[in-house]
Simulated assay, not measured.
Amino acid sequence: MSIALNQPAAAPALTANHAGIRRWLWTVAGLVFLMIVVGGATRLTGSGLSITEWKPITGAMPPLSAAAWAEEFAKYRASPQYQILNNGMSLGEFQFIYWWEWGHRQLGRFIGLVFLAGFLVVALRRLLPGRRVALLFGMGLLLGLQGAIGWIMVASGLEPGMVAVAPVKLTLHLTFAGLFFASVVAFATALTPQRRPETAGSPAMAWLLLALTFVQIALGGLVAGSKAGFAFNTWPMMDGALVPPGSLLFARQPFWENFVDNVALVQFNHRLGAYVLLAAALWQLWRLQRAAPRSSAARRARAIAGIVAAQAVLGIVTLLLVVPLWAGLAHQALAFAVLAMAVVHLTRLAARRADVV
């Protein structure tokens, strides 16, 4: 993102417009963050397959009568998840999981409306240069694609013999949510004036941290999708060893299936990703503390290292406690807090070299 951060004092109208755009973008980012938490709760409560149809418009209305509830329950009873996993579920139990999924979908619709409304104001009033409006339009397409991926994910869990969504498609859904969230945070950050110019820090290192954060979020998606967090609930040992034997990690055929469906390898990769990300965050902190300990970059590096360390500890606690709801949600939320901080850090460092309005 290469929007100038130091606007001249002689342009109050432009500054005011940017302030409004920033408020809109940070609101969208906050809603997406909330969506991540609600989505995690929907998954952990087993609610994601309770609505078996995708109706982007009419689906916004929930059942409003006993007959409508009976019809929705009948559709769910025809699903593999009910027949294999939840046979005998009462209507009240179904309503509990239904409301979680319904709320998740409505929040997605609301985010889409908020983004669309803000985009139309920016575009019609020409509050930003055309290329920035085009970038916002692309972000809107990414948001729409995310909704479609969400349904593709749900549809995978409605296939015969399935009781949950496919891990790869859940990971894709989570990763695209991260991409949209990151783009909103980057755009908002780039429009925010800096109090002091950047004097230290390497964009290359910031890019590495951001890439590692995305990889770790994707690995976490595979853990969630395969329910790998409910196995091997010890640390630092895993199945009695720091590095489990290859016969456990690569027990499936074909070989590539182990990376998405073998809970041992899926969890082990997520552990390794956490170690690498923490090491990178600490390495960046060490370098900046030595070079410019009072710089803005160093302060952000301290914050990033601190929150990555907290996330690692929370991940261990979540594993040892066998993924209670509160810990699973906190772990997912903190992952996106790390992502937001990594994006802000990179955007600030990249803007130091930018030289446009």
Rank of each mutant, 00 (worst) to 15 (best):
residue 156 S to I: 01
residue 158 L to I: 06
residue 160 P to T: 04
residue 162 M to S: 11
residue 163 V to W: 00
residue 164 A to T: 10
residue 167 P to A: 09
residue 167 P to K: 06
residue 167 P to H: 08
residue 169 K to H: 05
residue 171 T to L: 01
residue 174 L to E: 05
residue 175 T to A: 14
residue 175 T to E: 09
residue 177 A to N: 10
residue 178 G to V: 04
residue 180 F to R: 04
residue 180 F to A: 14
residue 181 F to V: 12
residue 184 V to G: 13
residue 185 V to S: 12
residue 186 A to L: 02
residue 186 A to W: 07
residue 187 F to W: 06
residue 188 A to W: 14
residue 189 T to K: 12
residue 190 A to G: 15
residue 190 A to D: 12
residue 191 L to R: 12
residue 191 L to T: 11
residue 192 T to L: 04
residue 193 P to Y: 04
residue 193 P to I: 10
residue 193 P to M: 08
residue 194 Q to F: 01
residue 195 R to S: 14
residue 196 R to S: 13
residue 197 P to L: 10
residue 198 E to I: 15
residue 198 E to H: 00
residue 201 G to W: 02
residue 202 S to E: 11
residue 202 S to W: 01
residue 203 P to G: 03
residue 204 A to K: 15
residue 204 A to E: 11
residue 204 A to M: 13
residue 206 A to T: 02
residue 206 A to N: 02
residue 211 A to P: 01
residue 211 A to E: 00
residue 211 A to R: 00
residue 212 L to G: 06
residue 212 L to S: 09
residue 213 T to G: 09
residue 214 F to P: 06
residue 215 V to K: 00
residue 217 I to L: 06
residue 218 A to P: 05
residue 218 A to Q: 02
residue 219 L to A: 14
residue 219 L to T: 04
residue 219 L to I: 01
residue 219 L to P: 03
residue 220 G to Y: 01
residue 221 G to A: 06
residue 222 L to T: 05
residue 224 A to K: 12
residue 224 A to Q: 06
residue 225 G to L: 10
residue 226 S to L: 11
residue 226 S to G: 05
residue 227 K to Q: 13
residue 228 A to C: 08
residue 230 F to A: 06
residue 230 F to N: 09
residue 230 F to V: 02
residue 231 A to H: 12
residue 233 N to S: 08
residue 233 N to P: 07
residue 234 T to E: 15
residue 235 W to F: 15
residue 238 M to T: 01
residue 238 M to Q: 08
residue 239 D to M: 13
residue 239 D to I: 04
residue 240 G to V: 13
residue 241 A to V: 09
residue 242 L to V: 13
residue 243 V to P: 01
residue 244 P to Q: 12
residue 244 P to A: 03
residue 245 P to W: 02
residue 245 P to L: 05
residue 249 L to M: 15
residue 252 R to K: 15
residue 253 Q to A: 14
residue 254 P to K: 14
residue 258 N to C: 08
residue 259 F to A: 10
residue 259 F to K: 02
residue 262 N to Y: 08
residue 262 N to Q: 12
residue 263 V to L: 10
residue 263 V to Y: 06
residue 264 A to D: 14
residue 264 A to E: 13
residue 264 A to P: 09
residue 267 Q to A: 11
residue 269 N to P: 00
residue 269 N to S: 13
residue 269 N to M: 11
residue 270 H to L: 08
residue 272 L to I: 15
residue 273 G to I: 04
residue 273 G to V: 01
residue 274 A to N: 07
residue 275 Y to E: 05
residue 275 Y to A: 13
residue 277 L to D: 07
residue 277 L to P: 08
residue 279 A to M: 08
residue 280 A to L: 09
residue 282 L to A: 12
residue 284 Q to D: 11
residue 285 L to G: 03
residue 287 R to D: 00
residue 287 R to K: 07
residue 287 R to N: 00
residue 288 L to R: 05
residue 288 L to E: 14
residue 290 R to P: 00
residue 290 R to E: 01
residue 292 A to I: 00
